[in-house]
Amino acid sequence: MIDASAHPLLQLRGITKRFPGVIANDNVSLDLFSGEILALLGENGAGKTTLMNILYGLYMADEGEAVLKGVPVRIHNPRQAIDLGIAMVHQHFMLIPTLTVAENIILGDERTRGPLLDIQGAEQEISELARQYGLQIDPHARLQDLQSGGDWPGLRARGSAF
């Protein structure tokens, strides 16, 4: 499937990120091709998450650049990353306990009916998706009221489902 002669979909070139007292990424480069699934392996503190956070705009690299479809991009924030088609499923839950399941999922990409949020529409769609994948999710439940481990994993699909 991978055509080696094709241009990489995404390139990271010479990414360096320093935190006070530690170099998290030291001149890291990688190529990612269309259709490829790439795993970064490394022990704790190797800098995997830092690299992904840089790609997602949560951190700014001190040196180096990202090239997306041949065009150098400077990603300043997650909004920009999302708009460029980069989604991230975080290691730790990036979810808000006081909001409902539906509110957590639509956050950042809200659909509205007139001036108001279309929560009901979102809840219906989530219920349907959940049924499709055999998940037990009540979209109207607050996250803090759910059993962690039991009901939560389905929410990891957040980045990909919507």
């Binding site: 997602y56 909004r79 991230m88 990036m94 808000i96 909001l99």
Partner: peptide, 16 residues
């Protein structure tokens, strides 16, 4: 509400 509860989560959802 998102920003006041968990700003990092809101940020990763693309909210300034």
């Amino acid at each position: 509400r998102a920003v006041g509860e968990h700003p990092l989560a809101a940020d990763t959802a693309g909210i300034n």
